[in-house]
Design a protein around this nucleic acid. Structure first.
Length: 312
DNA sequence: TACGCGTGGGG
DNA sequence: TCCCCAAGCGT
């Protein structure tokens, strides 16, 4: 096997050398910036522990920090350890989830707490593969918990980091719709060698994307790596090509599911079908949404046309 | 791989 | 107003 001979810049060895040099230019400014500008978030404090980090990561999947904060505090006060949550009915997790959205996350967090209690003696596992095996934990969250809670060296590739890399390194305004192998490879190549620095870099590059290198109205004047940013140096060309995939518009089952579940969250006794019928006028869509909630395990049907949040 | 899955705030 | 976006996951 000989090395590919396409161009000097596309050979793997050359790409790694470029990444090494690039990383050296990026790590210190970003980490130093983080030292000065990191938000004081409760799950970043030492007392949060791995469980606090894990709870925050579930809640932050597609939900802004400002909305997570109050729910996070209540959650940790009520269920300070995984076993505390595992001892509850899953419906209680769904109720406490409130209006964070995507309530299946609450069910999965409950399921993860049960699995941690059963399989890991009640302690959040530190092993990446064990984390990945828990319900609701995918590639990003496993890396995030291992890195933020346990200081391990992992590529933590969330939407913020992907955007920072797309701009600073690749020179485009936005990353692709779905995470690509090239992005993973780049993230690994840019990871500092030593463990504590890698963990710091992961948090710092995320924070840069969240506070400075935002999706809209990025503020390059506050960016510690503006001088090296490929996108800025190229004149910040606008995204071209096919439109970025947005979320499908409201009026869908999602909206109906939300209304149905809101009724059940606020009720502390089984709710009759007639009460649910009032949230949406169109019966076919209403029935389909309710069926979906039941099959997802978010709603438990009882005899006599009654419904409630799941007791088991 | 592309899609479905909540909710609310800001430009 | 409307549209876009917000620390993804599971299928």
């Amino acid at each position: 096997m000989t090395a590919p001979t396409k161009s000097p810049h596309s050979s793997p060895a050359r790409a790694d050398a470029v990444a090494d040099a690039l990383g050296a230019d990026l790590h210190s400014p970003v980490i130093d910036w983080f030292d000065d500008h990191a938000r004081d978030l409760p799950w970043r404090r030492p007392e949060a522990g791995a469980w606090g980090v894990m709870v925050s990561e579930f809640m932050l999947q597609q939900t802004p920090v400002s909305r997570v904060l109050p729910v996070y505090e209540q959650w940790l006060a009520r269920w300070p350890r995984p076993a505390d949550l595992a001892a509850e009915a899953p419906g209680e997790a769904v109720r406490a989830w409130g209006r964070l959205g995507y309530p299946r996350r609450a069910l999965r967090l409950h399921g993860a707490a049960v699995a941690i209690t059963e399989r890991h003696g009640g302690g959040v596992p530190s092993d990446h593969a064990h984390l990945l095996a828990l319900p609701g934990i995918g590639e990003y969250t496993a890396a995030a918990v291992a890195s933020f809670a346990y200081g391990q060296r992992h590529a933590v590739l969330d939407t913020n980091v992907r955007r920072v890399f797309a701009r600073a390194v690749t020179g485009v305004q936005y990353p692709p719709n779905a995470t690509t192998a090239a992005e993973r490879k780049l993230a690994r190549a840019l990871l500092p060698d030593d463990e504590p620095t890698a963990a710091r870099w992961a948090a710092a590059s995320m924070e840069l994307g969240a506070l400075v290198c935002t999706a809209r109205n990025e503020t390059c004047v506050r960016c510690p790596i503006a001088a090296q940013c490929a996108w800025r140096l190229a004149g910040k060309p606008e995204h071209d090509g096919p439109p970025r995939r947005g979320q499908t518009y409201a009026g869908t089952d999602r909206q109906v599911r939300g209304k149905l579940l809101a009724v059940l969250r606020d009720a502390h006794a089984p709710v009759p079908q007639t009460a649910l019928d009032r949230v949406w006028h169109e019966p076919v869509q209403r029935a389909r949404a309710l069926d979906g909630l039941v099959s997802d395990g978010l709603v438990e049907p009882l005899p006599d046309g009654l419904y409630r949040l799941p007791l088991s």
